[in-house]
Every structure is written in C-alpha cells, then in structure tokens.
Nucleic acid binder design. Structure first.
Lengths: 116, 116
DNA sequence: TCCCGTAGTTCAGGAAATCGGAACAATTGA
DNA sequence: TCAATTGTTCCGATTTCCTGAACTACGGGA
C-alpha cells in the first residue's frame, strides 16, 4: 500500500478529467464529493443508485479520479478521506467543473422525472 | 453504407459527450469543426498534429462524435460534410461545450509553448 | 503484544472496447 | 463502363476495464 499520489495542478490534463467523468459511477462519486459538505470515505459509495459496486472497483474509480486531479485523498488512520480539488481545477480550466456538474445535475433530474 | 444516424437532442447524454471528447484525436477534430468557419469532410483530418490517422479509425471517431450528438454529418455526393451541433447541445447543457473548448484551447496553447 | 475487525489496495483472469489493415460500397467524371 | 475518390465495414490483435480473491495497513481491545 503505497502513498497516495496526486498530480500537481499544472500536470492535470483535460483529457484525463473528461475520461474520469465519462463513467457514470465516477461522475456520481465526484458530484457527491464536490457538492457535499462533508468529506467522504470510499465506503460511502458501496452502492451508487441501486447498483452495488465491489470495493476493488471503487478503489480503481477513486484512483482514476485522484490521478485525474479531481479529488484529494488523505489517509486518516484506517480510512481515506476524499475532498474535491474543484478550486484548483477551476483555476486552471475556468468554468469547466461547474459546467459539467451542472449538466450532471440536469441529467440526473430528468432521469428521476422519467422514473416517477 | 447505411444512413447516418443522429440522436435527437433530448437523447444526448453527458456521459457520451465526455467520453467522445476524452480522446485527443476526437477532441481536436471537434474543436476544429466547432470553431472553424468552414464545414469539414473526414479526409481533412488524415493527420492530427504530426500523427497519421488511418481512415478506418477516422470513420469510427466521426461515428462516436456523431452518436454523442456533437456533430451533424451530411452526405454530399461522394463526401460527408460535418458541422457542429454546439447550439443544440448548449441549449441542453448550457456552458458545457464552451468550457470544454476553452479548456482544450488553453491546453493546446501550453503544449505549444513547451514545444518551442 | 497478539489478535481481530475495518478500510483499501493489488493481482489475475475474463469481458469489453479500441485500433488499423484489407476488402467493400457509393458516387462522380471521363 | 471504368477508374478515382470518399468513406464504411469486417475482423484479428492489442489494450483497457471489471471484479473476486488474496493481501496490506492501521487501530482497538484484552
């Protein structure tokens, strides 16, 4: 279990961000971390929607988000706490994260409406 | 060779857009189509940067962009002309395309600077 | 100090997506 | 009708993704 590696903000690539957020599970995780007030550990996402996510997959998803520069992960004893790097990323790519989160929110809302 | 299929704007998914633009070749193609004045045919992208792209791959890339709802392709005789659907997409996801294109432009500029 | 429970990571395989050369299809002009 | 141009489809090779199983790391008793 090696140390959690985060790219410097200058090394963050647009391509990596778009790829990271093009997966619905990762998009949901990131939206929760980015918009939520409290810092989340990985196990908070053992289920996304009504789908169960194996923890090995979760670990990979968090790694992708982390290496894309979207989240920061810090070990606190036995757990890892995740927070978003929205501020930094917004400094590099102004408006990008906000537009994606906004679009994600809109889409989730319309999906919920259809499900009614 | 069947007819070119385009999703209705209501069926356009954020996930598909992010996936389509997470590939550097497709991002470059889309940026060119979206920002350029003239409508482009596929062969205009036989090379992206200094890399040669086989036409079978190009065909797939255009298909991905088309099915994500990002471009519109119309057959004109022997060629296919592509135009962007930025306006429609912006109506559904305001600011999204602009933010991504802006980020793409910033990144290309910094890459060019390093290459000097 | 030695276990045990919790939290995540790594590994390995099978499944799925992607790439690109070769063959094919559609259109135009001679 | 034939050839050139433009793009698509097919298919095998490569790459990436997913996930169960095994493993590592830390903290809390007893």
């Amino acid at each position: 279990m090696r140390t959690l590696v985060h790219p410097s903000i200058d090394d963050v690539r647009l391509e990596a961000i778009l790829h990271a957020l093009s997966d619905p599970v990762r998009a949901e995780i990131f939206a929760t971390i980015a918009t939520g007030a409290c810092i989340q550990n990985c196990s908070a996402f053992a289920a996304v929607g009504d789908r169960v996510i194996p923890k090995s997959s979760l670990s990979q998803h968090f790694k992708v988000l982390r290496e894309a520069g979207l989240i920061r992960s810090e070990r606190h004893g036995v757990e890892v706490r995740n927070s978003s790097r929205c501020g930094e990323v917004d400094g590099r790519f102004p408006g990008l994260i906000a537009a994606i989160l906004d679009a994600h929110g809109k889409e989730q809302a319309s999906v919920a409406k259809v499900a009614e």
